[in-house]
């Protein structure tokens, strides 16, 4: 019985979902079932979000009650979560001015601030990568320099970098990316088949 619940039923659900969604891609009559399946997925995901919130709340409550390291941050997390929930339920729900204010001036701004920190990491990554150690590395350094010069305002005085940079981005770079995308698509098909045939069961 346990094997049926833990193994066979999830496999059947996964296999049926793959067949229905693939069928929707080519057969018109499958559209109704596929739409229903998509709606179910949204509902399941919404419940998953609820469960995740419960899990997060329990974790932070425990951190506060046991005075774990950084417990005061847990207070901020729970207070922020509670504030957003309360404001979201105030009429007219998520359209309220308070909700939008919190979202725009707290969430978006802090997100942008952290996103901006990426500039330092990208510079450090470029420093590590752009070291001339081999012929291939030299090619990459030359390509990277041309692309960087094309985007730097003052470098326009030194020469016409734009056409060369556009060629690098449109030909070798796009070609390599498309190769990766095609092979990834083959990998995805193989993964789907392994799930469909019951050879791969990530839920086990």
């Amino acid at each position: 019985m346990t094997s049926i619940i833990r193994d066979q039923i999830p496999w059947f659900i996964a296999g049926a979902s793959i067949i229905i969604m693939f069928g929707d891609y080519i057969l018109d009559p499958m559209a109704v079932i596929a739409t229903a399946l998509r709606n179910w997925a949204v509902i399941v995901a919404a419940f998953a979000m609820g469960l995740a919130m419960v899990s997060m709340t329990i974790f932070h409550f425990r951190a506060i009650s046991q005075r774990q390291s950084g417990w005061y941050y847990s207070i901020c997390t729970l207070a922020g979560m509670l504030a957003m929930i309360i404001v979201a339920f105030m009429p007219p729900m998520t359209g309220s001015a308070q909700f939008n204010w919190l979202y725009k001036w707290v969430n978006t701004v802090s997100g942008q601030t952290t996103y901006a920190a990426l500039a330092f990491w990208i510079s450090a990554a470029a420093y590590r990568t752009l070291r001339v150690r081999s012929f291939e590395a030299t090619l990459m350094v030359v390509a990277a320099m041309i692309c960087m010069f094309a985007n730097a305002p003052l470098s326009a005085l030194l020469g016409p970098w734009k056409p060369a940079a556009s060629w690098f981005l449109a030909v070798p770079s796009t070609g390599a990316y498309r190769g990766i995308v095609i092979t990834s698509a083959c990998g995805m098909i193989a993964l789907g088949l392994r799930v469909l045939l019951g050879r791969l069961r990530p839920w086990e």
Binding site: A125, A126, R128, T129, I180, V181, T183, S184, C186, G187, M188, A190, L191
Partner: peptide, 14 residues
Amino acid sequence: AVCDYFMIGEEIYA
């Protein structure tokens, strides 16, 4: 650029 080991695209599916 930064990882010690890296799996590209389809390698993660395999």
